[in-house]
Design a protein around this nucleic acid. Structure first.
Length: 586
RNA sequence: CGGGGUGUGGCGCAGUUGGUAGCGUGCCUGGUUUGGGACCAGGAGGCCGGGAGUUCAAGUCUCCCCACCCCGACCA
């Protein structure tokens, strides 16, 4: 029994000034967590209970698919991460330290290497596979900007697991097992989620999906279809097959377009001086050619021009996801000047492409379909060309998903309109493939005695982040509202009487009886605290069922309040225990 | 790393033209209260983020640094 007269907790009347998002504000105000360091939080007794409940649900579901828990040191030697190149590649986000002998160490941000080496250490036969291992441990990342309390810290609790299989079919099964387990985990937590397609990126895998809690304060932007069940991270959105433009277009013509440095001014000029007969020109008739620099992992760079419709923005992150591990940046002025074939503001595809005069690689967004006609730069100042047709008048080196996805874009699955939403990444399932096994030499002998490289999957759940996400999903102006599965206790009893009177005696008895039934109870037995304060605290702390033992005891009743529904029901004292037990167990 | 903001008792804040710090809340003691953050009285609690400077005198002015929050960049 947690007696509020002794529980180590202090609720705050005011919002802490450094907290912005609801989960952060309320978890601090209700006495669940305290900030202890930049991006680091102390878990107080109530918060610790919630965290452990989430952790246990995750653990049970991992065990249920046959995954086995292990525990690593947080302090890891440099050489392990050197082998995979991550000591340098991970960059500033890695916490590095030096021991007394001058040896380099790091605090684990994620544990692919450790798991891979652990399996290599012990297993060497196909007969040992498949196997899935997991850990629930604190991860350390030196985030550039920790924010939003628990949502992005520098130290956080995460469950990550890794599957090891001999072949693709095995990996697919391990992946699906984890995916199913994650669905069960988030369902049990009561946390709404959306599964979105994600980019596998530099990790070199294939299948990758994120579990997002659709919450406004989330940092991830994703799209979902308003009609079918398609959902994807914005970087991973693919454009559906678009029909080629088969219409007849006029021959190309060059026009003088003085003082038209922007798309808007160009369109205005055209409508005034070279109007179309069928309709007016618009930004979507223009082809915008964006000059980028590709920075390869070995340090070399190469230019890339991407063509998109003039009414659309370019999404560099989306491009980057497709050219990974290369990085993409806008071309700087100095580099631009080294390409005399490029005329700033008047770049056209006639001089672009591997076979062209400049030899600069040229890629088109798929929305620039074959056969479509465009207004674009004529590669000389103050001059544009009209009716330049893709395939007739120029050829690109290929297509690349380049435009910033916008609400209203067609769904690649069903063609209806997409919407944009925000979410918190609470889980990620991912087919890693053989990248780590290759680099670290994790092989086993197959049935023919031949060495084969093991294929891996990687699967994460942010445990501490899930606590914050649930707080985001379930709260109101006055406090938290925990789902039963992770509430720190089952029932919160408010006793409004004075020490030793009938009311406090009845409250004590009810608490004992409920506990005897196996329920966890908070008893607000504070003496000399006014009922109003007790009600406010109960609502702030957010236990789903609040029982008030107070003035209605005179009529033989207690009040049973539902924090989620906001209801208040008078229940006879005699049946109170049974009533509450059935509520909690339902 | 760029832009903006804030640092003053535990928490939330005020502090004017420079004159040696105050309010609310919380905490302690005594008393009165007890169904929606009660009341009275008396208390404890502050190196005003740090450093350097200007001045007879700095919370207040100047310079430098640090921390935190927000936006952006970044983010398995």
């Amino acid at each position: 029994m947690l007696r509020l007269s002794h529980l180590f907790v202090r609720t705050l009347r005011d919002d802490p000034s450094d907290a912005e998002v609801p989960s952060h504000r309320l978890l601090v105000r209700a006495g669940y967590i305290r900030r202890a360091a930049p991006g680091g939080y102390t878990w107080l007794p109530l918060g610790w209970r919630v965290l452990r409940k989430v952790e246990n649900i995750v653990r049970e579901e991992m065990d249920a698919i046959g995954a086995q828990e292990v525990h690593f040191p947080a302090l890891l030697p440099r050489d392990v991460y050197e082998t995979t190149g991550r000591w340098s590649e991970y960059g500033d986000n890695l916490f590095r330290l030096v021991d007394r002998k001058g040896a380099d160490y790091l605090l684990g941000p994620t544990h692919e290497e450790m798991f891979t080496l652990l399996v290599k250490d012990l297993y060497s036969s196909y007969k040992d596979l498949p196997v899935s291992l997991y850990q629930i441990q604190t991860k350390y990342r030196d985030e550039a900007r920790p924010r939003a309390g628990l949502l992005r810290g520098r130290e956080f609790l995460m469950k990550d697991s890794y599957s090891f299989d001999i072949d693709e079919a095995g990996l697919a099964k391990s992946y699906n097992d984890h995916r199913d387990a994650y669905e069960r985990i988030f369902t049990r937590l009561g946390l709404p989620y959306v599964i979105v397609k994600a980019m596998s990126g530099a990790m070199g895998g294939s299948m990758s999906e994120e579990f997002l809690a659709p919450i406004e304060v989330g940092e991830d932007t994703f799209v979902r279809c308003t009609s079918c069940d398609y959902a994807a991270n914005t970087e991973a959105v693919t454009t559906g097959a678009l029909a080629a433009d088969s219409s007849e277009h006029p021959a190309t013509s060059t026009v003088s377009t003085p003082n038209c440095p922007t798309i808007a001014s160009l369109v205005e000029y055209l409508n005034t001086n070279v109007p179309r007969t069928d309709r007016t020109w618009s930004a979507s008739d223009t082809l915008k050619n964006v000059v980028l620099t590709l920075r390869n992992p070995d340090g070399t760079t190469s230019p890339l021009v991407v063509g998109v419709p003039g009414d659309r923005e370019v999404d560099i992150k989306r491009i980057e996801a497709q050219v990974s591990p290369a990085e993409v940046e806008p071309m700087d002025d100095a580099t631009f000047a080294k390409h005399p074939g490029l005329v700033r503001g008047y770049i056209g595809p006639q001089v672009l492409g591997a076979e062209s005069t400049t030899g600069i690689r040229y890629m088109l967004d798929p929305s620039v379909v074959p056969g479509s006609a465009w207004v674009t730069g004529a590669n000389q100042k103050d001059t544009h060309v009209l009716h330049l047709v893709n395939g007739r008048d120029f050829t690109a080196d290929g297509t690349i998903e380049a435009v910033e996805v916008a609400a209203g874009d067609p769904c690649p699955n069903c063609g209806k309109s997409l919407e944009i939403a925000r979410g918190i990444e609470i889980g990620h399932v991912f087919q890693l493939g053989r990248k780590y096994a290759d680099k670290l030499g994790l092989t086993v002998l197959d049935q023919n005695g031949k060495q084969v490289v093991v294929t891996m999957g990687s699967y994460g759940v942010g445990v501490s982040r899930a606590v914050a996400s649930i707080a985001e999903a379930f709260h109101d102006d006055i406090g938290l509202k925990w789902p039963r599965a992770i509430s720190p206790v089952d029932v919160h009893i408010v006793v409004t009487g004075k020490n030793g009177d009938d009311i406090t005696v009845a409250g004590e008895q009810l608490a004992k009886d409920l506990e005897a039934q196996g329920l966890d109870v908070i008893l607000d037995d504070r003496n000399g605290v006014s009922p109003g304060v007790k009600f406010k605290d109960a609502e702030l702390m957010g236990i789903p069922t609040i029982v008030v033992v107070g003035k209605s005891l005179a009529d033989g009743n207690v009040e049973v309040r539902d924090r989620h529904a906001g209801t208040n029901e008078a229940i006879p004292v005699a049946s109170a225990v049974q009533h509450v037990v059935s509520l909690v167990r339902s």
